[in-house]
C-alpha cells in the first residue's frame, strides 16, 4: 500500500500539488466550499429524517431538493481531495485521523445504502404528515453523527499530519 502511495506522491500530479505555487491552497479552498455544501445538504436531509424540522414538506421532497447538491459537491470534494492527498500520500496514509475519516465515510455510505434499499424504499409515497418509522429516524441520527465526525477528523489532519 505504501509503495502505491509513494508512487502517487512522486507522480506529476503529486509533485505539482506539492510544489506548484498556490495550487495546494486553491485545491483546499475548492475542497472546503464543496464539503460545506455537501455536508450542509446532508444535515438538511438528516434533520428532516429525524423529524425535527420542516415537517410540512415531505421527506421525499426535502431529499429531492438537497440530494443533487450532495452528489455534485461530493464529486468535487472527491477530486480536489484526491489531488491534495496525492501531494503527501504517504504522510496522509500514516495519519490515523485520515484513516478514521475514511472509515466513518464508509459507515455513512453503508448507512445511506441500507436506508435507501430497505427503510426508505417507498420513500416517495411518504406524505408530509407520515409518521416516520423509528428506523428512518435512527438512520438520520446516525448519518448526522458520522458526518460531524468526518468533518472533525478532516480538520484534525491539518494539526497532526507529519510532513
Amino acid at each position: 500500500m505504501e509503495q502505491l502511495f509513494q508512487w502517487l506522491q512522486n507522480s506529476p500530479l503529486g509533485a505539482a500539488v506539492r510544489m506548484q505555487g498556490d495550487l495546494f491552497p486553491i485545491l483546499e479552498t475548492i475542497h472546503v466550499i464543496s464539503i460545506t455544501a455537501t455536508v450542509g445538504c446532508i444535515v438538511i436531509m438528516d434533520l428532516r429524517l429525524v423529524g425535527l424540522v420542516w415537517t410540512k414538506r415531505s421527506v421525499g421532497r426535502v431529499i429531492g431538493d438537497a440530494l443533487p447538491v450532495v452528489w455534485i459537491g461530493f464529486v468535487i470534494a472527491l477530486i480536489s481531495g484526491f489531488a491534495l492527498f496525492a501531494s503527501h500520500a504517504v504522510n496522509y496514509w500514516r495519519d490515523s485521523w485520515f484513516v478514521w475519516k475514511f472509515v466513518f465515510m464508509a459507515m455513512a455510505f453503508v448507512n445511506q445504502l441500507v436506508f435507501h434499499i430497505i427503510t426508505g424504499k417507498d420513500l416517495h409515497s411518504w406524505k408530509a404528515s407520515f409518521q416516520l418509522p423509528v428506523s428512518a429516524k435512527v438512520a438520520g441520527a446516525v448519518s448526522l453523527a458520522l458526518w460531524i465526525a468526518i468533518v472533525a477528523c478532516g480538520r484534525m489532519i491539518g494539526f497532526t499530519m507529519d510532513v
Binding site: 464539503i35 460545506t36 450542509g40 445538504c41 438538511i44 429531492g64 447538491v69 460531524i148 468533518v151 480538520r155
Partner: peptide, 29 residues
C-alpha cells in the same frame, strides 16, 4: 481544532441554506 470543526459545520449550514434558496430562486429545484 474543536472550535474550527464547529466553525466549519456552522459554515456548512449557512452554505447549504443559501444554496437551497438560490437554486429555488433560479428555478432549478
Amino acid at each position: 481544532p474543536t472550535l474550527q470543526t464547529i466553525h466549519i459545520l456552522c459554515v456548512a449550514i449557512i452554505m447549504s441554506s443559501i444554496v437551497m434558496i438560490t437554486l429555488r430562486i433560479v428555478g432549478l429545484i
